[in-house]
């Protein structure tokens, strides 16, 4: 047999009138209408809470002694799929155990795809995807964020690798090993 007989429910007179079901439905919607708690989040006043591991704008960080952790190795620039990062390295002044640092660090926020590869690639733990997602500008130029701005967004991260300290502890100086 190519067909199947479907058992239809036998409706009582009350069910056939529909009105009891309509009343029940109206009661339900009224219950929700009077409910105090709403799901709407009043966005600009009520800050949005982003989940853990949220991939926001990439940012540079300083350590707890106020040093820029980035050593301008350009790993992030190399790995970045949309080529949003541009690092111009420069020599650090004086007798610093670390020779190299970013003279300029540019992130084109219009190109960035928030993949997080820069964070993964960074050997110095200097670049992190922050929880920032609100940023704007009136032109393409304004949307390219420089070093100062990225450092401001990134803030301080005390934990992790500190290259300059490691170098200093090993007795390294610009003039060569002090052995």
């Amino acid at each position: 047999m190519a067909y199947k007989t479907v058992e239809r429910p036998v409706l009582t007179t009350a069910e056939k009138l529909y009105l009891p079901a309509v009343m029940k439905g109206l009661g339900l919607t009224l219950k929700y209408f009077l409910k105090r708690k709403k799901f709407t989040r009043q966005y600009p006043e009520e800050p949005t809470v982003v989940p853990e591991g949220y991939r926001g704008l990439p940012s540079l960080v300083k350590d707890d002694e106020g040093r820029v952790k980035c050593v301008a190795c350009s790993m992030c620039e190399w790995v970045c799929p949309p080529e949003a990062i541009r690092v111009i390295p420069g020599e650090l002044p004086g007798d610093d155990p670390v020779e190299k640092g970013p003279k300029e660090f540019e992130l084109d926020t219009l190109r960035c795809i928030f993949c997080g590869l820069c964070e993964e690639a960074c050997p110095e733990e200097a670049i992190f995807l922050s929880e920032t997602f609100e940023y704007c500008g009136r032109s393409r130029e304004e949307m390219i964020f420089g070093k100062e701005k990225l450092l401001e967004i990134g803030g301080v991260r005390a934990e992790g690798v500190k290259k300059w300290k490691k170098e200093a502890d090993a007795g390294f100086s610009r003039k060569g090993p002090r052995r």
Partner: peptide, 10 residues
């Protein structure tokens, strides 16, 4: 407003 309130919105 009423439709929103019924749907738990504002």
């Amino acid at each position: 407003r009423i439709s929103a309130f019924i749907q738990d919105r504002l």
